[in-house]
Design a protein around this nucleic acid. Structure first.
Length: 752
DNA sequence: TAAACCGTTGTTTTT
DNA sequence: CAACGGTTTA
């Protein structure tokens, strides 16, 4: 057509192999790309979108789906860089959310719906269980929600389940399921599963709506197809129903969300579900060195339920995979920090090193070890941030503004900060609201008419209602500004304990910062959009990949990423594979569960380009007790020629009960020393400390505000703030030349 | 009847 | 080790 077109297409195909090209240039009809780890699958999707656009396809007719928002923005950015125009890329949940906001009114639901996270859902289920006079001990809300979620993932609604339920337990579940759905509807809320499910129902019950989308989407592209569940598969199927141009990319060996309903069958039966499909296999790995790739391939080859696939590389062998054993998690963390320090000194960019673990709580010792060496790191855990109580409180205020029917949110904030509306009054309010069919907020407006409320409660509830009216009337330019106003108006911070206030203030200022970013990037965004984004974040979304800091993340979050150097910690039985995968009381088969854990390890290993470290401990604290642990059974399966095994255990000195000296020992010793010193100095001060509530503001003899320090990297500076946090002290130091730095040190440790 | 207190519980991974 | 639920206190 025009002269730049063929140039563009040449650019787009540049550097691609034959099979990658076949996928990128595929014409009409369904396409399945079976792409092994590191075989360039994301690249293939991006180039394929770019290729379609270069062919003159209207971006509006393309829908692309990724696993996380982060991957979505990244994909959009990279397509734009190639072709100069982007397409809309989102996650399944975000896509469904957008669609429902537009269309849900045909199902007689309000488009301003709230999105409930797991915690909100558990609370709702608990209320339903109680309302039905069921015992929360025998009918645990968490478990019931899990079962409900599983049913939703199988597209089994409450009515269908009620027909199937025979046993007492199952019938109770049917009751709760139905009640939970009613509760959601009354609150005008959808849970995560509903975003998918209601979209399916929308398409099923309103063919005219479905047709609109089928007409529109000439091309449907989906990444990480191995982790899609049944509802997602059905949505994909529905969307491609007219043009049949679906591209699904994935790797069955990287399916790690089976517990969330991911179905390998979506890929394995792709040809059946999408007649006339083409399959392209990508088996060449461009990412990892030979040793890493071979070790990972051998690892995954131990899975029985698997189609054989041989990944190959022509890259050099590189260093062997290092497997090290340590005494405990602190020494393990110390080893990681020490090695990272060496790597950085040798010129490795900290952002090209990553630390993975199976469970989030494993991050604590690592943070400590990195903090004490002043190594820049970031714990990738956005969801954790949005789970903080201050953040959830403020979000609930905003949520009630947007959706006054949301009783869950309203109950959360009705007495936060404390304003004299206790449990009893809340119950009365709730009962009244149920009776009249009003929301809690509306009921609060008629507090005086509720006979059971005493005069004091009536005053408190009315005051709350007036406060909410006031907030609803706020004029605001930015969401950041709105949050600030709410914090002021509610005197939220003033009501916090002295001890918590600093933390709360910091959390809220982070929230405002986040809101500020939203304001900036979404000039015409609204509160609804902000809340939606906050509700649908994934952990990695908050990771600043450009920062020169070592990311710490779970193996699940690591999917789709790659780094030069990878540390995989806690490779122990009961952690990886996790204990929950080893006991078979679950409905899922034990073998399946263990194989999923093996895939998880495989995902972690294949993230590494050049160097891979697998670490495990002899002992680990779990449930507050020290327990001896065994190396992961998976480690035995690795081929000896690719790995180097090493014990990094400390030897106990003869005659000494505490032979090895690690950070903990040193910290304890320093603390003892400090205490005895303060005993001498302040006489009874030490005894006071033994009493219940006398938390010392700053640790004795360690770092105190005002103190001058000298750090081996940052030089001289002054301590601004120091506070104890469990076994660590968090300090803020203003360095003379380097500016303000926050770090976490083991209790009792100074660095000069 | 609100709020502080205490014991028990259950602890993977996440859109 | 936290969050929740029940119990005591004021």
């Amino acid at each position: 057509m025009n002269p730049t077109k063929s140039e563009k297409i040449e650019d787009i195909l540049e550097g691609l192999t034959e099979s990658q090209r076949r996928a990128v240039c595929h014409g009409e009809g369904p396409l399945l790309v079976l792409a092994g780890a590191g075989s360039g699958k994301t690249r293939v999707i991006i180039r394929r979108i770019a290729y379609l656009l270069a062919q003159g396809v209207d971006p509006y007719t393309i829908v692309a789906v990724t696993f996380t928002n982060k991957a979505a923005t990244e994909m959009q950015r990279r397509v734009e860089a190639l072709v100069g125009e982007g397409v809309d890329v989102s996650t399944f949940h975000a896509f469904c959310c957008k669609t429902l906001r537009r269309e849900i009114s045909v199902m007689n639901r309000d488009p301003g719906f709230s999105i409930y996270d797991r915690r909100d859902s558990v609370r709702a289920v608990r209320r339903v269980v109680k309302d039905n006079d069921l015992d929360t001990k025998t009918h645990k809300p968490r478990e019931m929600l899990n079962r409900i979620s599983n049913l939703k993932n199988k597209v089994v609604g409450p009515e269908a389940w009620a027909e199937e339920a025979v046993s007492v337990n199952d019938r109770a579940l049917a009751t709760v399921y139905k009640g939970y759905e009613e509760e959601l509807e009354a609150n005008n809320a959808l849970d995560f599963d509903d975003l998918l499910l209601k979209t399916i129902l929308l398409f099923r019950e309103h063919p005219e709506v479905l047709q609109k989308y089928q007409d529109r989407f000439e091309h449907v592209l989906i990444d990480e197809y191995q982790d899609t569940n049944l509802p997602q598969h059905l949505i994909a199927q529905a969307l491609q129903g007219k043009h049949h141009n679906i591209t699904a990319v994935g790797d069955p060996d990287q399916m790690i969300y089976g517990w969330r309903g991911a179905r390998l069958d979506n890929m394995l039966e792709f040809e059946h579900d999408f007649p006339g499909s083409t399959i392209v296999k990508l088996e060449r790995n461009y990412r990892s060195t030979g040793n890493i790739l071979r070790a990972a391939s051998v690892c995954i080859s131990h899975n029985l339920r698997r189609h054989d696939k041989q990944l190959w590389t022509d890259r050099e062998d590189g260093p062997q995979v290092q497997i090290t054993q340590h005494d405990n998690a602190y020494r393990e963390a110390d080893f990681v920090a020490e090695t990272v320090e060496e790597l950085i000194e040798q010129g490795t960019d900290p952002g090209q090193i990553a630390v993975f673990y199976r469970t989030k709580y494993q991050s604590a010792p690592l943070e400590q070890a990195f903090g004490s060496r002043a190594l820049q790191h970031q714990v990738v855990d956005s969801v954790g941030f949005f789970d903080r109580k201050e953040v959830k409180d403020l979000r609930a205020y905003l949520q009630v503004l947007v959706n006054p029917d949301d009783d869950e949110a309203c109950l959360r904030i009705i007495n936060k900060p404390k304003r004299g509306i206790g449990k009893r009054s809340q119950e009365k309010l709730l009962r009244y609201a149920r009776k009249t069919g009003d929301s809690i907020l509306r009921a609060a407006g008629h507090a005086a008419e509720i006979e059971s409320l005493g005069p004091r409660a009536v005053r408190a509830v009315t005051a709350f209602h007036e406060l909410m009216e006031e907030i609803a009337g706020f004029e605001y330019e930015t969401i950041e500004g709105l949050i600030e106003k709410i914090v002021e108006e509610t005197e939220y911070l003033e009501a916090c304990d002295d001890e918590d206030r600093r933390d709360a203030a910091e959390t809220l200022s982070n929230l405002m910062g986040y809101a500020g970013q939203y304001d900036e990037h979404h000039p015409d965004g609204d509160l609804l959009g902000f809340l939606e984004q906050a509700a649908l974040v994934s952990d990695v979304d908050g990771w600043n990949a450009g920062a020169s800091a070592v990311p710490f993340m779970t193996l699940h979050s690591a999917k789709g990423l790659e780094f030069d150097v990878v540390f995989l910690t806690g490779v122990e039985d009961h952690l990886l594979p996790h204990a929950r995968a080893l006991d078979d009381d679950d409905s899922r088969h034990e073998l399946d569960a263990v194989e999923e854990e093996r895939r998880l390890l495989h995902v972690g290993m294949t993230r590494a380009r050049k160097q891979l470290y697998l670490t495990h401990c002899r002992e680990r604290f779990s449930q507050g007790r020290k327990q001896s642990v065994e190396p992961s059974r998976f480690l035995d399966e690795l081929p000896e020629d690719c790995v180097q095994r090493q014990s990094r255990r400390s030897f106990k000195r003869a005659g000494s009960a505490s032979g090895f000296r690690d950070e903990m020992d040193r910290a304890i010793a320093a603390k003892r020393k400090a205490r005895s010193r303060s005993h001498r100095k302040a006489g009874s001060a030490g005894q006071k400390q033994e009493k219940k509530k006398e938390k010392p503001k700053t640790p004795e003899g360690v770092l105190n505000p005002g103190q001058r320090v000298n750090h081996h990297m940052y030089g001289e500076g002054e301590v601004i703030e120091a506070e104890l946090d469990g076994n660590m002290q968090r300090v803020r130091i203003l360095f003379d030349t380097e500016g303000e730095v926050q770090m976490v040190l083991p209790k009792g440790k100074t660095f000069s």
